[in-house]
């Protein structure tokens, strides 16, 4: 596994001047969107790493981005307190929503009709979860300023969120390590798992059918959860704080990345820092391989929806795209076990 993943020649995407915050593939996997603290969103051809263009307009760190399933619209949230809607194909900003605080996380619903966003709790403003209905008619500039739904989760701040398989239900990860399900209409917490993690949840990515999801946390673990019951299915324990976790489609693997806090990087060697993307077996909870490359903590990982490549974005400002080689697909490190995706 180790060698196999190393043999694939990674493509280094050098289009950001500061650390990466989030990267996303589109539905077909041909495009890769990356956002960074340098106020820029880049879009790349994932197969060769050629940059297609940028989405300019934000005036602060861009924390988050998501693209709809038709690759028509892109949303992004930033420390400039705005949520923006973009035309994917021409890079034009279609609409700007402005809030009192920074936008930390955005996500499309699976029918592309809605966008959920989390705004930060800061300067006397409560953290809020807003759901906007996206008007897909016309040129996309005709959006409603007011959210369709809005609520303030009580208790620990929400850090990550996503729509589940039910359009009315979103899943959130919190600073306390809590994972919860919220009904967007009523704003009530339907279900929670207070002790899903022992520290802040840093990433949350759903399976393709959204029936389960993976979270990463500062508590040095990544966990797999059942969306319906929030039961923890699997735990992946490491020795370093984790920033991101992703599911590999069509293979029973998960990818996790992290490393020491940026503040402590100068005092840790590369080896200690564990700046590697680590592959674990999803079912057996065993580590099966590592991929080196970044010079700092890995902040975000995304896997191609067809499971043919993956990309990682680091504190070092680079995005590395790795295409899996033939042996990755042939290898059966655990024998002929048929594992449902």
């Amino acid at each position: 596994m180790h060698e196999q993943t190393n043999r694939t020649r990674p493509i280094l995407l050098q289009g950001h001047e500061r650390s990466l915050t989030q990267i996303r593939f589109n539905n077909e996997g041909d495009l890769l969107f990356s956002c960074s603290k340098d106020h820029i969103i880049n879009v790349w051809f994932s197969h060769n790493g050629e940059r297609l263009g940028t989405y300019d307009g934000h005036n602060g760190t861009i924390w988050t981005t998501d693209v709809d399933s038709q690759s028509k619209y892109l949303v992004s949230g930033s420390a400039d307190n705005t949520l923006r809607l973009w035309n994917v194909s021409n890079g034009k900003c279609l609409y700007v929503w402005e809030f009192p605080t920074a936008v930390k996380r955005v996500a499309f619903s699976d029918d592309d009709e809605k966008v959920v966003c989390i705004t930060e709790q800061r300067m006397g403003h409560q953290g809020a979860v807003r759901v906007f209905k996206i008007n897909r008619d016309g040129d996309g500039t005709n959006q409603s300023l007011e959210p369709e739904h809005m609520f303030h989760p009580v208790g620990s701040k929400a850090t990550v969120c996503a729509f589940t398989y039910k359009p009315s239900l979103i899943v959130t990860g919190h600073e306390s390590g809590k994972v919860a399900l919220f009904d967007v209409v009523s704003g009530t917490e339907v279900l929670n798992n207070e002790r899903a993690h022992m520290d802040s949840v840093t990433d949350l990515q759903l399976s393709l059918d959204r029936t389960y999801f993976i979270t990463s946390s500062k508590d040095k673990t990544a966990r797999l959860h059942d969306t319906k019951t929030l039961r923890v299915l699997k735990t992946f324990s490491t020795e370093t704080p984790l920033n991101s976790a992703a599911l590999a489609p069509n293979k029973p693997y998960i990818l996790i990345g992290g490393g020491q806090e940026a503040m402590q990087v100068t005092t840790t060697s590369l080896r200690q820092g564990k700046f590697e993307t680590r592959f674990w077996h999803k079912i057996f909870e065993e580590e099966i391989g590592r991929v080196k490359g970044h010079f700092g903590p890995i902040n975000t990982i995304a896997v191609h929806p067809a499971g043919t490549s993956y990309a990682s974005g680091g504190e070092d400002g680079f995005v590395r795209v790795h295409h899996f080689d033939e042996s990755y697909f042939k290898a059966k490190p655990y024998g002929d076990l048929e594992i449902e995706d």
Partner: peptide, 19 residues
């Protein structure tokens, strides 16, 4: 491992049906 895979697959089947 076989047991773990069987459990997982059974759960996936349930999930898909529910979905």
């Amino acid at each position: 491992r076989k047991r773990l895979v069987d459990e997982w697959n059974a759960w996936r089947v349930r999930c898909k049906r529910d979905l």
